[in-house]
């Protein structure tokens, strides 16, 4: 990283499309940050995001009637229909804002995401994972998903200070920790080809991520150890898929 890449945020522009006036998000909300990045990414395409299918509890585009809100324990989903050049073919760009607040969210099986692989197997031409702690990666993936022909799915991990139990000022840092410990590796599946977009040779210990959050307070040392092995196995499987898909 050279010294000028620090200034990359200047190239995104300072025009703000995300209206914070009406939203009721908490301090350090990861979903709000991710939604803002999605707005920034789709800025150049003249997309009317307000007319898309919102399933976000605190969205300013929904009425304040709590009975009509979707269940907050389900992941928030944003579906935008992409219009083809001939206006006949339309495919969805689906973005899942996952803050892991479901009832069994702290379970080991739910922490390791396999939904992008399922989406790719179901015929989505582009599936990817992203995190708002890596904003340029997220913006690049949303733009790629919009420009590619066919349906696209993007899974965004959004740290939630309230449900996960950490200070709001660490919201971005916890998301970065999830990427660096390889619990939530950033990769994309473009037309069947796997590619890891953010790779570190030496990962952080998984224990750091577990100890930083109160939702894992009940975890024993044995469980953490078995979870470490699960993370390693999942990442090895991902690397194997990268190799096999590129060699074909």
């Amino acid at each position: 990283m050279d010294k000028y890449s620090l200034y990359a945020a200047q190239f995104l522009g300072f025009k703000e499309h995300f209206l914070p006036k009406g939203h009721h998000a908490c301090q350090g909300c990861g979903v709000a940050l991710a939604v803002r990045h999605v707005y920034k990414a789709l800025d150049r395409y003249n997309v009317a995001i307000e007319n898309a299918n919102w399933q976000i509890p605190w969205s300013p585009h929904l009425p304040l009637d709590t009975t009509s809100h979707p269940n907050t324990t389900t992941p928030s989903l944003l579906t935008i229909l992409k219009k083809g050049k001939d206006e006949q073919i339309s495919a969805p760009l689906m973005i899942c804002f996952d803050n892991e607040t479901s009832k069994n969210g702290a379970d080991t099986t739910n922490l390791l995401k396999r939904i992008p692989a399922i989406a790719a197997a179901a015929g989505y031409t582009y599936a990817a994972t992203a995190c708002p702690s890596h904003p340029f990666d997220l913006i690049e993936k949303v733009r790629t998903g919009w420009e590619r022909h066919g349906a696209a799915y993007i899974h965004i991990l959004c740290p939630c200070p309230v449900a996960w139990g950490f200070e709001p000022q660490y919201a971005v840092r916890i998301g970065r920790m999830a990427v660096e410990t390889r619990i939530f590796p950033l990769y994309e599946i473009a037309g069947g080809y796997y590619r890891i977009t953010c790779e570190d040779e030496y990962p952080r210990p998984v224990k750091e991520y577990i100890k930083a959050q109160k939702r894992f307070a009940a975890w024993s040392a044995k469980k953490i150890e078995s979870f470490e092995q699960d993370v390693k196995a999942a990442y090895d499987m991902l690397i194997g898929q990268c190799r096999t898909s590129s060699s074909q």
């Binding site: 620090l6 945020a9 200047q10 300072f14 703000e16 998000a25 940050l33 904003p135």
Partner: peptide, 18 residues
Amino acid sequence: CVRCALCYIYCPHAAINR
């Protein structure tokens, strides 16, 4: 401050302006 805009890009509530 070196005006790198990192605080701007990481603000969830879009409260920081240039």
